[in-house]
Amino acid sequence: MLNRNTVKNSKKIPREPSVLIVGIPGPGLIGTLSVSYLVHALDMEIVGEIENPDTTPVVFIDDGEIFGPIRIYKSGSLYAVLSDIPIDYDMAVSFIQSLIEFAQKNGVDMILLPNGIHAGEKDPNNIKTFGLSTDERLDVVMYDNEIPKFLTGMIAGPDATILTYLKNSQVPALILFTQCNFFFPDPESAMHTIKTISNIVKRDVDLTEFKKQVNYLRLQGRQLMEDTLNIMQQEKETKPPQIYK
């Protein structure tokens, strides 16, 4: 049968930009804490997992269901990838490749990667988040949300691999660096990151529950922080050649 329907005067319906937020363990557990809470507060549903062949197989069981350590969540046009294991050198390339492939297949307009940056004596009332974009179109996002540019510094290890792949990908990415305590879980700085992300994606996030659990998160996050630091330490030990020490 022939299709006799015709569409007249169609206007392109503007769609909400699709954003992928990526939470991986790092300094102060900023990525893990902020994205874990966003997934909860925005009632995001699990829609998939990233399986990585380069990591020790590990799963956790919840209510009789098996879950992998790197999961994908969705709510409307917002996606989140949350990893409960640190991304080491062996995993970094395949992880970021899978992430970019997922973003391209699902029409993601922007990847948001919250991370932490060491602040010696940070003032809890004046925590700053800096932004680093891989595409100049995202400078507007930084400007609109009053996020100062990350101007000078060095990023090493798997994070550098991730940034290199993001820089060379077609999907624009904005990396957020929030001042934090590098060595201990830092929920206060994670809270600042959550506020910044909620402004960028224009979703209200109620932080009441998070605020009540700051001490608990610092205690509960010890194990993951320790594993993350062990991986960072390995990187440090393999990094600078002796002559530059």
Partner: peptide
């Protein structure tokens, strides 16, 4: 809370 219970399950079981 749900958030804390979920965080505890994930982090404790894997680490």
């Amino acid at each position: 809370t749900d958030f804390i219970a979920s965080f505890e399950k994930r982090v404790s079981s894997l680490h």
